[in-house]
Design a protein around this nucleic acid. Structure first.
Lengths: 232, 232
DNA sequence: GGATGTGAAGTAGTTCACAGCC
DNA sequence: GGCTGTGAACTACTTCACATCC
């Protein structure tokens, strides 16, 4: 289907990649409100970065802004989607259907942008066989179907074992919510999400008065600006 | 109470702050396994960063390593705790006791390191008055008690309103799980956690073969290394 | 007029390489 | 011998400033 996958090669810097989804979220908000144009200044204020940073980031996706008039919100959204590969579909398997697993699969915002829910696994007999988010929960000790990404939502003690099983099932990208460092073979990507770390970072800044306090803006995911307190 | 708050002043860089909790988690893992010493090389491998980076980060907390023998795991854990301000206690209020809110307050790893659960709020009559994690859920339209940090786990549409109420209740640090950019007055810190963004970043790297794929190591929270694929 | 896009300058963070110490 | 801690070199990212174009 997607034919626009040609020149995605331009490599983006890590900080840019982390900011693009944020800009996209902002663009969507603008779209919902029926607005049609946005400029780098506005994006920057909402995202908590400078307008220049926004322009540099977006320039990396090709020049689609209009001098004097900013960016078309639809095009902005679209281009970011292309850059991030949202035209491709991905299968996401979720292991561990507790509170967190449920919250994720039921969230209208987790499985978006190409991500589609594949199989759910758990080892609790009470949970196995029940329907969650339109999928029957499968037993963890049964066969694991291939998927693009595996989401690990099990307790820390089980995380390594689950990771091993997913890797054996040829799943080479993991999103790990367990507070546990896991070891996987080279060539497998692991991304960690750790709520308490977010809380700790927030508290550190609170204690020290430093850091991304200023402005009530989107300092998403711990991304820091060199100059967080824009002098206004 | 805390008396050890004297020379915490040494300001740490943003990337360092984000890595310290990770090192600490590694130290704890070592402790649990009864190991007593760890060196920068080992920390680096588990954390997905170079040994030099680890040493630089830790040097910022004062020199407590032993040349030739690495770091004492207990001291390591302790020093990071001091640097991050874990000797202080914080009250954490949670708004929105759905799946996610429940998952958070029941997680043994969310409310650690000085964070203690204060009040829970929701606007669902079914939920108000019930006991969750040892606390009775209070109505969101009632009075909001002062707390250090407010955790926002409500749907996106309600996020701004909830944020306003928390700020009015003199809560000036928010951890926002809603997929919604919120605006707060200057002087209030907002930290965003957005699962779908984590997923998107992971997928980008998967598509492009770049980035923190190599090693199955702790590339926590989207923190990137300049040289992720260490040549081994 | 007004905002983009981008060389050039500046700054922050990482890595090298090795002196210092156990 | 081995590993820490750190000046010096390097790299990456951000910010400045302005030419460019609608």
């Amino acid at each position: 289907m997607a034919v626009t996958t040609r020149l995605r090669a331009r490599k983006l810097s890590e900080p840019t990649i982390a900011r693009l989804p944020v800009y996209q979220r902002i663009a969507e908000g603008w779209q919902r409100r029926g607005l049609t144009r946005i400029d780098s200044q506005q994006i920057g204020e909402l995202a908590g970065v400078t307008a220049t940073t926004v322009r540099r980031d977006l320039a990396g996706l090709g020049s689609f802004g209009t001098r004097g008039a900013g960016y078309d919100v639809n095009v902005l959204n679209e281009r970011i989607g292309e850059a991030l590969g949202h035209d491709r579909k991905y299968d996401v398997a979720v292991v561990g259907i507790g509170n967190l697993g449920r919250a994720l699969v039921n969230s209208s915002n987790f499985l978006i942008r190409g991500a589609q829910l594949a199989d759910l696994y758990d080892n609790d007999p009470e949970v196995i066989g029940t329907e969650v988010a339109g999928h029957i929960v499968k037993p963890l000790n049964g066969p694991i179907a291939r998927a693009t990404v595996g989401v690990v939502c099990v307790p820390a003690v089980a995380a390594q074992e689950v990771a091993d099983r997913l890797v054996n099932a040829d799943i080479h990208a993991l999103l790990n919510f367990a507070q546990q460092v896991i070891t996987v073979p080279l060539g497998t990507a692991v991304h960690y999400v750790d709520f308490s770390i977010e809380l700790q970072i927030l508290m550190y800044h609170l204690n020290n008065g430093t850091g991304p306090l200023g402005g009530g803006l989107l300092h998403s995911l711990g991304i820091a600006t060199a100059n967080p307190l824009r002098a206004t």
